[in-house]
Amino acid sequence: MARYLLTRAWQSALTLLLSTIVVFFGVRALPGDPALALAGEDRSPEALEAIRRHYGLDQPLPVQFAQYVERMVQGDFGVSIRTGTPVSSMLTTALPVTVELSVLAILLATALGVGAGVLAAVRRGRPAEWVANGMALIGLSVPHFWLGLLAILYLSVATGLFPASGFVPILEDPVDNLHHIVLPAVILGTGLAAIIMRQTRSAMLDSLSSDYVRTAKAKGLRPRAVITQHALRNSLIVVVTVVGLQLGGLISGAVVTEQIFGLPGFGKMTIDAVFQRDYPVIQAVVLLTATAYIVINFLVDLLYSVIDPRIRVTGDPA
């Protein structure tokens, strides 16, 4: 157990370090002088010189990298070129929106995806399976930003049931907040649900045809007990993996949905930054996305050891 967690922790840390290096050099590969980028409004030669000294841009690269990591760890992502506000404060307003949207979408998707996946596996060869499979294939093939577009055109604009765009912070008005975010969350959740459903179904088919499920049936267990106690419990690893992967990708995956529904989240901030060549913001966004992904995956690994006793006890995933 300890060895497994240590290995995973070490691998995560290594990936994190590599990502930081990639971002560091990536930003330096971007066209334009970073000092110019960091300067914001004041672009006088003296100011640029001061910035170079302040950010150590006159130092050799390894030193620069060390200083860069130090600043990142302290939460100093620099200042937005366009707005002049510190990137960290932009993040504190944008992140809650994205996190709320992502969490809501993943909850919806998990409930729908796992439910439909189990149903499709259990009702194999019956109409229920065809319906679930068909829905999943469509969910997998539909561009969800288009679905969002149609939802706005034919649900929000036409009926006025949902606001077409905008956001109200949850602390200001929880009901209005939900009203604004539920449609984007549903739209975002559909594509995820399709992926989760297909993985759940295939894992369930595997465990349903396994020897231990045969044993469970031979013991005289009810189908419901066979499915939940035996088949589903063994499929949980797959479910947790796919849900974790989705969640890890959502921080950036929500970009388009946020863009369409005009939600002032992380994604919108990313797109705006790209079009405005706001390098400090892009850098912070990329680094945060990668970190979120790596951290979530580490948490998933931790969860494995809770679900699977083989990992818990011996440290080797079987």
Partner: peptide
């Protein structure tokens, strides 16, 4: 009651 050939796979690994 039944006993099967492969006791490794016939027992549920997570219980």
């Amino acid at each position: 009651a039944y006993i099967f050939q492969e006791p490794m796979t016939s027992l549920n690994p997570v219980l």
